[in-house]
Amino acid sequence: MDMIVRTVAKGIVPFIWIYGAYIILHGHITPGGSFSGGVIVAAGAVLLIIAYGTKGAEKSLHEDNLHLLEALAGAVLVFLLLSEMFFRDYVTVLMGYFDIVSAGYVLLLNVAGGVMVLAALITIAYMFTRR
């Protein structure tokens, strides 16, 4: 695309990503959580794909890495959710030590779910723009 579009996209995408990460990480206090935060991060990545084309965006977001990231995030999510009744008390006490008040298990699950959502949506965006 045009040089103006590329420069502006290059400058603004980190802010979009930070905002998306904020929504994912604060999912246990403010409204949001993994689904909306993952969508926002994916929207920033879609802006990169539009500005730089598929070949340009592949230099930073390669598709095989996304598949592997999704598989690992899915594995972590399944492990966390299915072992919850053993570890919940320990995690709540642990989060209290680090002064992350009112977090508990929900914080870890939000992060894992958010990574899975963003990997899935960026892969779908690649599918649709690769002709």
Binding site: H67, L68, E70, A71, G74, A75, V78, L82
Partner: peptide
């Protein structure tokens, strides 16, 4: 009970990844 479901989900995820 959770083992069959977890194995199937892991299988699906890693089949697509690798």
């Amino acid at each position: 009970i959770v083992i069959p479901i977890a194995i199937l989900l892991m299988g699906a995820l890693f089949t697509l990844a690798f």
